[in-house]
């Protein structure tokens, strides 16, 4: 996909965004006419959409594979656990976001000079460090492993997650059209060259990392109020680091729809399988991850684009052959 395509106005390309917008409106109104079960499930799906889109905002854009998603999500979870009784839900989310942003900024400032697998290992290390540190602190000072979080109704959590998701979607679309987004693209395509044409790559990366972490922290703060009980293993579950990566790989990271589709598909499969067949679910997870990386480098969206491209070509070919 060429950069140009994203900028050139093409009326046919409007169909999809309009369709998505309609779906989103429907989703936003859904708690009024669906069963609570659906509202809970849709809430979970939105959480995954937020996580995978925000992961894609940094890692997908720059090629720096971060596994720190669970760390920033967990920070948000603990913000709710500590301040849940004194702040309202939107304020908790804001605070979770800000905490994650600040931590990500600091972590990014010292680590983003690491490249490739080193960076990935480091981010996974951060998750495990926070998990173990929290566990140690809880057991040493609190004498228990977990704690209770003030709870909100799942409808309330639903609406706030919905708002956060809309913001993340808009930001994902918008960021690509800014110079900041162009700078990220340059970094992904060749960081050395990017630095030498005047891009302050370190600062750009740190900022993108911190912005994406903001959404992760806010999502964590919201989800904690739905779970009522949390402990370090729940808050910093490494699955929350891996799932967004898989969702983006499966859906395709170059287009906003990719992570969106990936998140919906996997959240749904998870909902179907995880209670009765947890191992089969995780097994499928692994298999799909491997198959996607090898056979669908641009994800489902890439496959669809290819098919559409081929159909167009075939049509064009026929026109040429038949003057």
């Amino acid at each position: 996909m060429k950069l140009i395509n994203e900028y050139k106005a093409n009326p046919k390309k409007l169909i999809l965004p309009v369709l998505v917008a309609a779906l989103l409106v429907l989703l936003g109104l859904s708690p009024n006419f669906t069963k609570p079960y659906a509202t809970i499930m849709l809430g979970t799906i939105m959480m995954y959409i937020i996580l995978s889109l925000s992961w894609n905002m940094f890692s997908g854009a720059t090629g720096y594979v971060s596994l720190a998603t669970a760390a920033f999500f967990g920070v948000g979870v603990y913000v709710s656990a500590f301040f849940g009784s004194s702040l309202s839900l939107p304020l908790l989310m804001l605070m979770g976001g800000i905490f994650s942003f600040v931590i990500a900024f600091l972590v990014g400032a010292v680590t983003l000079r690491l490249r490739g697998v080193y960076f990935t290992i480091f981010t996974l290390g951060i998750v495990k460090l926070l998990e173990q540190l929290m566990l140690y602190l809880e057991i040493t000072f609190n004498k228990t492993r977990g704690r209770f979080v003030v709870s909100y109704t799942f409808t309330e959590v639903f609406y706030w997650l919905f708002i956060l998701m809309i913001l993340v979607i808009l930001l994902s679309v918008f960021i690509k059209r800014t110079r900041f987004g162009l700078a990220l693209k340059c970094i992904a395509e060749g960081e050395d060259a990017a630095m030498h044409i005047g891009i302050g790559s370190t600062m750009v990366k740190i900022l993108a990392f911190a912005i994406s972490s903001f959404a992760m922290g806010a999502a964590g703060a919201a989800m904690a109020t739905r779970w009522t009980y949390i402990d370090p293993y729940i808050a910093f579950s490494t699955n929350l680091s891996f799932l967004p990566v898989l969702m983006v790989i499966f859906g395709g990271g170059r287009h906003v729809f990719g992570p969106l589709i990936g998140a919906v598909v996997f959240a749904y499969i998870q909902e179907l399988l995880i209670t009765d067949f947890p191992y089969v679910y995780m097994l499928a997870f692994g298999v799909i991850m491997i198959v996607s990386i090898i056979f669908m480098p641009n994800g489902i969206v890439g496959v669809i684009e290819n098919i559409v491209g081929r159909i167009k070509k075939a049509k064009g070919g026929r026109k040429n052959a038949d003057p």
């Binding site: 594979v65 891996f242 898989l246 995780m282 692994g286």
Partner: peptide, 25 residues
């Protein structure tokens, strides 16, 4: 090589889930 390193690491994450869950089963 850089793309391979990044992809192969992700594939091995996938493998991690496969092996672990086959063992669990």
């Amino acid at each position: 090589t850089a793309a391979f390193e990044s992809n192969s690491m992700l594939v091995s994450f996938g493998l991690m889930f496969v092996v672990q869950n086959v063992a669990l089963l």
